Amino acid sequence: MAAAGGEPSTLKVSDELFQNFYTEVKQIEKRDSVLTSKQQIDRLLRPGSSYFNLNPFEVLQIDPDATEDELKKRFRALSILVHPDKNQDDQDRAQKAFEAVDKAYKLLLDQEQKKRILDVIHAGKEYIEHMVKEKKKQLKKDGKSQDVEEDDPEVFKQAVHKQTMKLFAELEIKRKEREAKEMHERKRAREEEIEAAEKAKRDREWQKNFEETRDGRVDSWRTFQAKGKTKEKKNRSFLKPPKVKMEQRE
């Protein structure tokens, strides 16, 4: 009887474990609806991914409140899914997807970068909370119901998600503009540096040529002066007045 009585208990535990496992899987599927290698690669390389992938938590599909252990586990699972070795028929795209996952993971390992990213996410949430508050305030002023669509947790979550993406995009655009400006300034400084170097080179060559031809110029000048004096002497001989003959008186 004991054995017979024990069997239902064992089955009960197994059912509970299975139910917990099933619930966990369904939660993962709901959060991650993308589970296959191909789908993950498509997700990470979808149009607009250069902006979608700015949020490392979005890339890794993990909650910002996740622990480091959860972050590591998620990285391992996702990196295996998109690794080029696992996707021999689509290695180039898999490599790009893997690089996106690897970059996101490294960003979140850097505590300073992670804080900056969390600040953006919190700013997005605060903005939506402020907008909801203002919306309710206006409805109250108008004497209307203060129920808004953002009262639905899922709608609120989506609004925060969109706002967060917008903030990340704006920061990236500013970063690129700043980078382009700095590149332009570096290019201009380099051009000025090259121009200055070329001018200095021309000046050195001119000075060298001037020094090398100095003796020749001096000799030419002396020759010119000597010829001038000779010519002057010749000219003077022509200018001598004729001798006056004395008249003879008878």
Rank of each mutant, 00 (worst) to 15 (best):
F238C: 01
K133R: 10
K229G: 01
L35N: 11
E211N: 04
E7C: 10
A159T: 05
Q207H: 05
F52M: 00
K136H: 06
K12L: 03
G143Q: 07
K140P: 01
I121H: 01
E191Q: 10
V148N: 03
V132G: 11
R46W: 00
I28C: 07
R204L: 13
D69Q: 11
G6F: 12
L139M: 05
K140G: 03
W221E: 12
E149Q: 03
K136D: 01
E112Y: 04
P84F: 06
V160N: 02
D85F: 04
L71N: 03
V120G: 04
A4Q: 09
K103D: 02
K233I: 13
D152K: 07
E198S: 02
D102P: 00
L11W: 05
Q95K: 14
K86C: 06
G124H: 04
F18D: 12
Y127W: 14
V34W: 05
F168D: 04
E212K: 09
K199V: 08
K199G: 00
A3H: 14
D92W: 07
E29H: 10
Q207I: 11
K201E: 13
K187R: 15
E129Y: 13
A3C: 06
T230G: 07
P153E: 08
R76Q: 10
A2K: 12
Q40S: 05
L17A: 05
E177F: 03
A4F: 15
G6P: 02
A66N: 02
E250T: 06
L60T: 00
D85L: 04
R222G: 00
R249K: 12
E58L: 00
Q138K: 06
I173K: 15
G228W: 13
S37W: 12
Q248W: 13
P64M: 01
S49E: 03
P56I: 03
S37T: 11
K38M: 14
F168A: 09
L11N: 08
L239R: 08
K162C: 00
Q88M: 12
E212Q: 10
Q163V: 00
R76Y: 15
K144A: 04
A123D: 13
S237L: 09
K135A: 12
Q248Y: 12
F52C: 01
K233S: 05
P47V: 05
E182Y: 01
Q138Y: 03
K176Q: 12
E134K: 11
E112Q: 06
M246A: 11
E29G: 03
S9F: 15
K227S: 10
L44F: 02
E70M: 02
T213S: 15
F224G: 15
D110G: 09
M131V: 15
K137V: 00
R222Y: 09
A2G: 13
R202L: 09
E247K: 15
L239W: 06
A77K: 07
Q163H: 12
Q146E: 11
E250A: 02
D90C: 12
